[in-house]
Write a protein that binds this DNA or RNA. Structure first.
Length: 329
DNA sequence: GACCCGTGGAG
DNA sequence: TCTCCAAGGGT
């Protein structure tokens, strides 16, 4: 859960997760929907699927306990070098290094590493240094302390060098360049993508259902439930936003391609902006009522008050809120 | 090595 | 409002 996610963000999910899946066996036997539902809102949903696959392997191959051997740990789905080292040092008290974002910042300053993060030579230098440092007593505590030092003292913007136990040994501090390290990897701007979404509903009041599809493997938000969407058509891209007619054409096309018909409103309900690390989505939201589906439609009616039982990403909740003012979250 | 994958808090 | 970046891993 903590991969690329702040600990404070993950904590409530962690507690709910353990309450729902108290043992490895419980998680291994759960359905993908149940696991993704418990993960909904946390992002990077592949982690949930990898965790699910990993715990299944732990149960099937290792009797429900994470194996002690480094090779076996590293071979589990979702367990890379960092997680393998965290398990080794914290759970098994083995002198294995870890390098997360915090450690990378501390060590790049300590040794004044001026090559960009992500580069092979940079990573090699960081892991080599971390490995040398952890070769002492209490490796788990040492690794966690190193991460805490980065999170609380050796912070990105305004490091508290006055409170740092390593200030006297820090090459970056000696040179006065600590705030310019580490050198970040070159950043790429999110690619703008225009989408049209159709929120198709059946029934009214508490019994109202919305038509959702489960995203296929290999697609964005794989395994999660979302409203039908299509990319904006070439006409709209060429003519721009003033071509209002083509906007509605996209909504019509979206409904048709997803095998749903009904009453499509004359104007969109609104617009949703959702930024991922590599994409910037602008979603025009349309409302279609009295929805009927053809037999081949991938859409499945879902009760609005039952969405918490499914894996549903934030983007979908934003879209539903735009189309259905009563929808919250 | 490059790219893909979500979300939210902090400054 | 905008930028940065989180206890990374897979392809």
């Amino acid at each position: 859960m903590c991969q690329q996610t702040r600990v404070d963000t993950a904590i409530p999910y962690y507690h709910r997760f353990l309450e729902r899946f108290p043992t490895p066996g419980d998680l291994a036997e759960a359905t993908e929907d149940e696991v993704l539902a418990a993960w909904s809102g946390l992002g990077y949903y592949r982690r949930a699927r990898l965790l699910h696959a990993g715990v299944k392997e732990v149960v099937a191959q290792y009797g429900g306990a994470v194996p002690r051997g480094a090779e076996e740990r590293r071979g589990l789905p979702g367990v890379g070098r960092y997680t393998a080292g965290a398990l080794g040092s914290i759970a098994f008290d083995l002198p294995e290094p870890i390098v997360d974002g915090n450690v990378a910042r501390v060590l790049s300053r300590l040794d004044r590493i001026e090559t960009p993060l992500g580069r092979a030579e940079t990573e090699r230098a960081l892991w080599t240094r971390a490995e040398a440092l952890v070769a002492g007593p209490r490796p788990g505590d040492f690794n966690q302390a190193l991460m805490e030092l980065g999170a609380l003292v050796c912070t990105p913007k305004a490091p508290g060098c006055g409170a740092c136990p390593w200030a006297a040994d820090c090459a970056a501090h000696a040179a006065g360049v600590e705030t310019s390290l580490p050198v970040p990897r070159p950043k790429k701007k999110p690619v703008p993508v225009s989408l049209t979404a159709v929120v198709a509903t059946r029934g009214r009041g508490a019994d109202r259902e919305v038509l959702l599809e489960r995203r296929a493997q290999g697609e964005l938000f794989a395994g999660l439930w979302m409203v039908p969407m299509v990319e904006a058509g070439p006409t709209q891209l060429a003519l721009g936003d003033e071509a209002a007619g083509s906007l509605r054409d996209d909504a019509q096309r979206c409904a048709r391609e997803h095998g749903v018909s009904g009453t499509l409103e004359a104007d969109p309900r609104g617009e949703v902006i959702h930024v991922l690390s590599h994409r910037r989505y602008r979603v025009r939201v349309w409302r279609l009522s009295a929805a009927r589906t053809r037999p081949e439609s991938p859409l499945v009616p879902q009760r609005l008050d039952g969405l918490s039982e499914l894996g549903v990403p934030r983007l979908t909740h934003k879209i539903l809120s735009a189309a259905l003012p009563s929808h919250e979250s």
